[in-house]
Amino acid sequence: MKEGQTVDTEKAGWEPRIIAFLCNWCSYAGADLAGISRLQYPPNVRVIRVPCSGRVNPYFIIKSLQHGVDGVLVSGCHPGDCHYINGNLVARRRFAIFKSILEFMGVEKGRVQFSWISAAEGERFSQVIKEVTEEIKALGPGKRFVKEI
């Protein structure tokens, strides 16, 4: 692979594996709505339901990268909508610093993403998943932090 080239063309046909941590009350319900409404979105995401975006410890994300997933999405309720009042607001600060440090250390922008999706936004859910999948596809396979033994 040439320097600066992020996509390994030898691995054409490669599809990214993305883990999505969705909060129970908004984003997971948004995903449900997308399903019920028969909206299409890329099958690259594996959903893990969590009580709240505030439940998502940065460990979950970094551990996912260590295990070799190509991208991580964390999604919660819009500010003001959190079932636990402010879990998402605490999470927002935590993720801001986490993302900044991650990128400072050299992890590509876009490898780890965050979104707010409400229970009524089925359409938006499928849109976000499309965008995230496209962006991670463009980055190529995740290599940083992967623990190869």
Binding site: L89, R92, R93, K99, F114
Partner: peptide, 16 residues
């Protein structure tokens, strides 16, 4: 301490 609190209008450009 900043990580023990939040403000409703904290920056969130990085969130979709």
């Amino acid at each position: 301490p900043p990580m023990a609190t939040f403000k409703i209008d904290d920056p969130q450009e990085f969130i979709k």
